[in-house]
């Protein structure tokens, strides 16, 4: 086992090798979609809820509340993106306790992909909400001389987002591997339990930071409107 699942080819579909990152990503996706289908097919509009619907409604409402508190806006437009980030990362990290499962979030490629999604989502949400001219002018604030630094700040925080998630998940796997070689009977269990906690926390941090970046882009729009009003 390497440090990254990108190098572990699980199966080859014709000429295309499928590495563990993609393979386990699909497993996570399949589980999520299956769970969503179960809820969707037995969706109750009344108070008689199934366990799955109850769980997902609680989770969705919690995420909507967090998004509202962070952004100060309605959660509707951001829930699919931010919610999927949290759910995907959390499920991937939690499944790390399953023997043989390689969390896709332990791949720098996955975290980079997610960070790139955030990188592009921030200006897209900003543009959708503020308009092209207004959003681009925000890079010239407070002076046009700050434009390069603003651009560098966008890129660096995206990089930090990717590295942070990758580092935390990968470090968990590495530490587990090291501890197994030292004390194979006791510490791995504690580390697995700790991994569950840190996995959910990392998912929360990643999603919250993404929402903060998106909110910062949309908040400027609101502040600009307020300035116009003044």
């Amino acid at each position: 086992m390497g440090l990254t699942p990108d190098t572990w080819i699980v199966v080859t579909l014709g000429p295309v090798p499928i590495n563990a990152t993609l393979f386990f990503t699909w497993i996570v996706m399949a589980l999520l979609v299956l769970s969503a289908l179960v809820v969707r097919l037995r969706l109750s509009q009344t108070g008689d809820l199934t366990v799955a619907q109850n769980f997902w409604e609680t989770l969705v409402e919690t995420m909507r509340t967090q998004i509202r508190e962070v952004s100060g806006q309605e959660a509707g437009p951001y829930l699919p993106f931010v919610g999927t980030l949290f759910v995907f990362i959390a499920v991937s990290n939690i499944l790390a306790v399953v023997p043989g499962f390689q969390p896709p979030t332990g791949s720098l490629s996955t975290t980079t992909a997610l960070a790139l999604c955030v990188l592009f989502a921030v200006p897209l949400f900003g543009l959708a909400r503020r308009g092209v001219g207004t959003y681009l002018r925000s890079y010239l604030q407070p002076t046009p001389l700050m434009a390069p630094f603003n651009i560098i700040g966008e890129i660096s925080r995206t990089l930090a987002l990717a590295i942070r998630l990758y580092g935390n998940v990968m470090s968990g796997s590495v530490i587990a591997g090291i501890l197994i070689s030292i004390a194979p009977f006791f510490f791995p269990i504690l580390m697995q339990l700790l991994g569950l906690l840190t996995g959910v926390i990392q998912a929360y941090i990643f999603a919250i930071l993404a929402m903060v970046y998106i909110a910062s882009a949309t908040h400027e729009h609101r502040n600009a409107d307020a300035a116009k009003g003044d």
Binding site: L43, L79, P80, T84, F88
Partner: peptide
């Protein structure tokens, strides 16, 4: 591929989970 997977997952969950549940 992961970007594509993620976007697909976003679309699927939006259709199958978030929108119906909300």
């Amino acid at each position: 591929a992961q970007i594509a997977n993620f976007l697909v997952l976003v679309w699927l969950l939006q259709r199958l989970l978030y929108r119906p549940v909300v």
